[in-house]
Amino acid sequence: MQLSGNNARTVADLAHHETGVLLSLDLEPALADRLMLLGFLPGEMVEAAQSAPGGDPRVYRVDGTEIALRRETALRLMLK
């Protein structure tokens, strides 16, 4: 798979209401597993929704559910 250079886009880069397709989860296995069970699977569409004041954490819509993630976690979810 090709990454677009070294400035790969992550879920944290999504603007409000923007969607992207998940490529990979660059997280330790326990957390990656947990997120995949919640729907953050490679190939799934992720939409950025509301955030807490200041932009962090933010709610993401994936597979019909809304999950809030801190920015530090969203930065490790790579987009296609």
Partner: peptide
């Protein structure tokens, strides 16, 4: 144990 904030709405 770095199980960070993951919260379903």
């Amino acid at each position: 144990e770095r199980m960070p904030f993951v919260l379903e709405m």
